[in-house]
Amino acid sequence: MFENNRICRLFGIQYPIVQAGMVWTSGWRLASAVSNAGGLGLIGSGSMYPEVLQEHIRKCKAATDKPFGVNVPLMYPDIERIMEIIIKEGVKIIFTSAGNPATYTGILKEKGLTVVHVVGSSKFARKAEAAGCDAVVAEGFEAGGHNGREETTTMVLIPAVRAAVKIPVIAAGGIATGRQLLASMVLGAEGGQVGTRFVASEESSNHPAFKAAVTAAEEGDTLLSLKKLVPVRLLKNEFFRQVAAAEQRGATPEELKSLLGRARAKKGMFEGDLEAGELEIGQVSALVKDILPAGKIVRILMEEFLDAVRNPF
């Protein structure tokens, strides 16, 4: 069914499903499980020291003979060392985000890598295409973690980006079911990047308490926060309420940065502190009600997708 799908051909994968490279979530176990199931697994380098990333890449190569990639937030420290390791270890696919794609795309392309950049607007999609990226991830307002300032929803963003660029578009934000994947492709995407659904997987690196909180979430339990710094969608908890109160009284970016402190996401998502931690997750958590093996999640997504194709109504 996907023989002519440009995303499947670009990455050499069976299904047009990309597992998001999320901080404190996407290690080698999750990436290799998704790749082995026919999707594209991504290691999330944003929460890894360079030597830790190197270890995850090597373990992923040992766990799968299928394509996988690394997600790199360009604003993070040690970026030069991160890029050196990715190239040295022979990774063939890199997703970049949170920065200017022109900085590294040319260098990576010269080394033979496939480069994809995450964008939140048509403007930045055009910039990514001009920089030489092979595809873009168009991430809508519904997504968890760091988010676009424009607050454009996935349903509006995908057709806008599709009209703006000629390279393949991968939809992200609010995709946790096969029917949602099909909807994004009807709008012009050629694949879907799935994050929140894989947080609630057996192989994700998240603390069990955070996984349980994700499956317990209901509609309205997440909100975009910290807009004066870098907007991020969070599950509501005590830390979120402190941020909301600070923002309501007009706190400066410096005050918000002090409140955020260091390792706040690690505290919540990796260590399981559900009150003091930063809990990054998407709106679609309201539809995620169980924790499953990543391979089963891929299989269910495709079963739901095919059922929706056959029975759209």
Rank of each mutant, 00 (worst) to 15 (best):
H207M: 11
E280T: 14
C60V: 08
H207S: 14
R310G: 13
A102S: 14
A286L: 13
L42I: 13
R81G: 00
G148Q: 02
N206P: 05
N237M: 07
A63P: 02
I170Q: 08
V23N: 11
A172E: 09
L40G: 00
F2Y: 15
G148R: 03
I297Q: 05
S205I: 01
G106W: 02
N5A: 03
L279M: 15
H207Q: 11
A33M: 08
A62C: 04
P231H: 13
D65E: 13
C133K: 03
S285A: 15
T252S: 15
V119L: 07
F95M: 11
E51N: 12
G148K: 06
P168V: 07
R264T: 14
E203V: 04
G277L: 12
L259Q: 08
G191N: 05
V298W: 01
T25I: 14
E278V: 14
L224N: 13
T177F: 09
W28T: 00
A308W: 05
D290A: 15
G282C: 09
K236F: 12
E3S: 13
L157W: 06
L157A: 11
D134R: 03
P101D: 13
K228D: 12
E190I: 01
V18W: 03
H146V: 14
F313W: 13
V18M: 10
A131K: 05
A130V: 10
A265I: 12
V70P: 00
H117C: 04
F141A: 14
F2A: 05
M185H: 01
F210V: 08
A160Q: 15
V116T: 03
A131E: 06
I87H: 01
V23T: 14
